[in-house]
Design a protein around this nucleic acid. Sequence first.
RNA 1: GUCCCCGUAGCUCAGCAGGAUAGAGCACUUCCCUCCUAAGGAAGGGGUCGGACGUUCGAAUCGUCUCGGGGACGCCA
Length: 560
Amino acid sequence: MIVKELLRKKLKAALEECRAAGTLVSAEFPPVVIEIPADPAHGDFATNVAMQLARSEKKAPRVVAAVICDQLAASVDIFEKLDIAGPGFINFRLKPGFWQGLISGMLSAGDSYGHSATGAGRKVQVEFVSANPTGPLHIGHGRGAAIGDTLCRLFAATGWDVSREFYYNDAGQQIANLARSVQSRCLGIEPGDPTWPEDGYQGEYIVELARAYLAGESVTADGKVVTASKDPQDLDGIRCFAVAALRREQDLDLQAFDVSFDNYFLESSLYSDGLVESAVQRIIAKGHTYEQDGALWLKTTDFGDDKDRVMRKSDGGYTYFVPDVAYHLNKWERGFVRVVNEQGADHHSTITRVRAGLQALDAGIPLGWPEYLLHQMVTVMRGGEEVKISKRAGSYVTLRDLIDEVGRDATRYFFLMRKPDSQLVFDIDLAKDQSSDNPVYYVQYAHARICRIFESAAEGNLSAAADQAALLVTVEELDIIRKCAAFPEMVEAAAVNFEPHRITTFLHELAALLHCFYNRHRVLGDDRNLTEARLYLLAAVRQVIANGLALLGVSAPERM
RNA sequence: GUCCCCGUAGCUCAGCAGGAUAGAGCACUUCCCUCCUAAGGAAGGGGUCGGACGUUCGAAUCGUCUCGGGGACGCCA
């Protein structure tokens, strides 16, 4: 139960009662907003509804507030204090018993505390990472993987039926370039040589691929085994081998990052299954195209673009967004009422084109479908300087480099600390720091600390006791309960707004409250009842921290 | 030129479907372990919320303009 929601209902009911009694006369009431005041002295919650009503009531805000307060005080008994403050705020302070009573619900919900049924089992697909198999995953993919994975976890936690999808191109220009690059290495050609392919891939991994190919190795990827033919002239064979090997590498990277997918979708299948051609024909039939300069154009300006775009080039090939449209039509036909594409912000210009293409299909697809979550760039800092070079990839920092150096938990946490809209500076020194300066450890330590207390408690045959909850009356204890009680709405907001960073922020705040409490009060003390009450509280905190970390895909260690 | 994101403490960033003295971490100055892990806590200094105008009882939050920084604008993918 979300406490704010409860209050909102009580307040709405009180307004209606006032109207029935004639003490309020407004024809309509504004949406009731309940907020948590910045200054805790103002109470647990506050509402501005009296100020909003002042105009239609033709009374001073504080007078309106008094009317509402009287009604609330008469009909609801959860308030310890109700008062009117400032220009007309109504401040609420709930009885300690109300807060103490919330703990049992947190513990009985257990691992699902904070979850909701908002999604009502509807299907949502999240497409993320979607890296082409032309090299190891880089740090930008890492951010996308962390954000996309956590978004999936958030959707699952809020009642959606989530499907995780990874889309890649195994046959385009970039792949041909990859094959040529590996072939060149097989033939002993190096970057800089006259015959080295233009824009060839130069990373060390290309050398490794050539070596493996010539050695006749076998790789397994996406359920298929590919064995190298060893023949440097077999460009197609090299392509298949290189793609399989890099897909496998990427899978290992993702596995190390604890990110998994339900479905891998190949761009080539769109062509082989005729989906591109049928989508194009359908758009033509709907009259949204024209021929000009030997090319086929889509009138994207009919759908908000600033100029029309070429669909089929004069050489007969399709431009890159066409298979994307066919792909998304396929997603729609698979029954996903919601689709979220998590991508780097540098792909932002494709959004208008894909949506325009989908509208041109006239397939009943809603205007804002699919949704997009774009993340900004990542820069990596070490020793106060930007890191740009990877030993493996040559020109960029790989996800694997990061995971190997700072660990999975810290890598994920750091990627999720900032809102996707903000550019991210990844400080390797801080991420590796095994101290409280490191926000990951700070949160994990709070969890481990509680676990340790429970171990000590067990040795003294002490355990949490719900019936002593009334003893939890200090500021620190009530602050903790209030924070834990706000967890479900935070999860909801993080899911609705695609904002995983709300979770890291929340966890850091909760951990701070826990550490503060720990330093001011002794849990295992002489007073057995109080000890059991505090253990009861800590059990809830441990659960909330564990649940929050689970949403991030970060471990909750019992010992550190 | 058009579009998107960002601009809040020295640094990295929260806060932004408007609300009551603007927050955290790092860095800096002090202090707290005979006691459940000091990977912790307490206290302190540090701000024209890029700027201007507007809407409002009230703006870091909304609108317009403007100045910075980043990204995207292809018959490349």
